[in-house]
Amino acid sequence: MNELGLHFNLLISAILFCIGVAGVLTRKNTIVIFMCIELMLNAVNLTLVTFSVYLNNINGQIFVFFVMAVAAAEAAVGLAIILSVFRNFLTVESDEVAELAG
């Protein structure tokens, strides 16, 4: 992989990460916020694999393997939390889930 590929992929993943950040800060639906977090994690995966291929080092791809497993576990717990919130509040909009002050 040549340098052009490296820089382009890094730029793309940086932009995707920032799009994810913007989504988390802007959207109100909790499920969409969580999807934007998954987008951020995907951007980081892209960074890691790009570096791994460029540096001829397998560790980056192993790291991605573990990150994917962690993301799966996180999705399970996160969606269960969202379900529990829905049962109590009957909504998943983050501005309506505001019983605690502030």
Binding site: M1, V49, V53, F65, A71
Partner: peptide
């Protein structure tokens, strides 16, 4: 990922994610 020849990770991405 597949374009960078990281086949294992590309497959995992499709299967898992």
């Amino acid at each position: 990922f597949a374009l960078m020849r990281a086949d294992f990770i590309a497959t995992l991405q499709v299967m898992l994610y």
